[in-house]
């Protein structure tokens, strides 16, 4: 009788005769220890060689289930869209790099540097003026009250369930039930209708829950759909956090008490 190690090796290499293979498969079915041994050797051969790969197929395994849940979570969806945004930014930087070798582009760079220099001087002037007398908090509160991008009117009898849920989520947000607002929108993904509106409510709810980085990441995702609303809220969030330099990248910050915040 053939030794098990040789038998397993010949089975994995596909060199058993038909009769040997039938007997081998019968033994696999009836002997759990033997089955586990063959399975491990099969996995090692596929994973540690260079050409093949050892695939998993147990959909109900607890570890697979745990990863599935994690992959479907809102946090992972955010990471996914952040990776996609980084990818876009990388491609743009590569395109710009190849343009940089063009002589006309080099001239444009010189002009851009001059423009940037002028902007820097303006920013320096802006921040060096006495701004302590301006009540930014009051101005920001006025800007938040504009509820930019939060107009989800639902007519009586509407059959658009996403829109109805969105209106409910907005109501929860206005009632300061921020976690419930986020939870009520959890099932939606980037393939859902009204996704940009969903992102706005999510981002603002995260902001109110003091989860600033998640709020900003959500606004990063929103920028792919509606960059102006994304910019507006990024500016307001930074302003609320007293990060004037960062806020100034997105919005015009007033230099006088009676002025309003405007989008850049």
């Amino acid at each position: 009788m053939m030794e098990d190690n040789i038998l397993i090796e010949q089975y994995l290499k596909g060199t058993l005769t038909d009769a040997q293979k039938t007997a081998f498969l019968k033994r696999l079915e009836s002997n759990a220890v033997f089955k586990a041994q063959v399975q491990l050797e099969e996995q090692m051969l596929a994973a540690l060689g260079e050409t093949y790969w050892s695939f998993a197929n147990n959909t109900s395994h607890a570890r697979v289930e745990a990863y599935k849940q994690l992959l479907e979570s809102e946090e992972t969806q955010l990471v996914k869209s952040t990776i996609a945004n980084a990818h876009k930014a990388y491609k743009i930087s590569q395109e710009n790099k190849s343009k940089a070798t063009n002589p006309i582009f080099k001239l444009r760079i010189v002009a851009s540097i001059a423009a940037i220099f002028m902007i820097l001087i303006s920013i320096f002037w802006f921040f060096s003026t006495d701004t302590n007398t301006i009540d930014y908090k009051a101005i920001a509160t006025k800007a938040w009250k504009k509820d930019v991008g939060l107009d989800f009117t639902v007519r009586n009898g509407t059959v658009d369930s996403t829109k109805v849920n969105l209106a409910k989520a907005l109501q929860l947000y206005k009632n300061k039930e921020y976690s419930q607002a986020i939870a009520s929108l959890q099932k939606y993904s980037n393939t859902s209708s009204h996704y940009k509106d969903i992102l706005v409510v999510r981002a603002l709810s995260y902001h109110k829950l003091q989860k600033t980085s998640v709020a900003l990441q959500t606004l990063d995702s929103l920028s792919a759909y509606t960059p102006r609303i994304s910019q507006w809220y990024k500016g307001l969030i930074y302003l609320e956090k007293n990060k004037l330099e960062k806020a100034a990248l997105f919005i015009h910050i007033p230099t006088k008490e009676n002025q309003e915040i405007k989008l850049k």
Binding site: Q43, A47, V64, E65, L71
Partner: peptide, 24 residues
Amino acid sequence: ISDVEDSAFAIVEQERYELFSEKL
């Protein structure tokens, strides 16, 4: 197999590969 299931499989397969190659 859904995309999420496939991604979950890819993760556990990588974990198994790492266990095997570490021991090798």
